[in-house]
């Protein structure tokens, strides 16, 4: 299991447009990626390709989230997704 932490850069938090961009990218990967707030148990993690789950996560600007995935290329995949979270799409 690969893990990567990322800080939400978007000023409005992880919803609407930033969530749409992230969920779309997660959905295009051949792996299943989960997302949870830092400090929450891994079994409560949600499907990162679901915009509704992301909105339900309620991650605000500055919150740290944990991305997890298994399998070939997991490290690179998480790295690319983390980059999206660390970009402010409203700027």
């Amino acid at each position: 299991m690969s893990e990567r932490k990322a800080t939400v850069a978007s000023r409005v938090g992880l919803h609407a447009r930033p969530a749409a961009i992230f969920a779309e990218a997660a959905g295009e990967l051949p792996l299943e990626v989960t997302i949870s707030l830092d400090g929450e148990p891994a079994e409560d993690a949600m499907d990162a390709s679901s915009i509704l789950s992301l909105m339900g996560l309620g991650a605000s600007h500055g919150d740290v989230v944990v991305l997890r995935a298994d399998g070939d290329g997991a490290e690179e995949a998480l790295e690319s997704l983390a980059k999206i979270l660390e970009t402010d799409h409203d700027a």
């Binding site: 447009r17 949600m46 499907d47 679901s50 915009i51 789950s53």
Partner: peptide, 18 residues
């Protein structure tokens, strides 16, 4: 368009469908 794009994703949302 940004709003509609997000709404389009909700229509095929994996969590909703699951």
């Amino acid at each position: 368009s940004a709003v509609l794009e997000a709404t389009a994703m909700m229509a095929a949302d994996p969590m909703l469908l699951k």
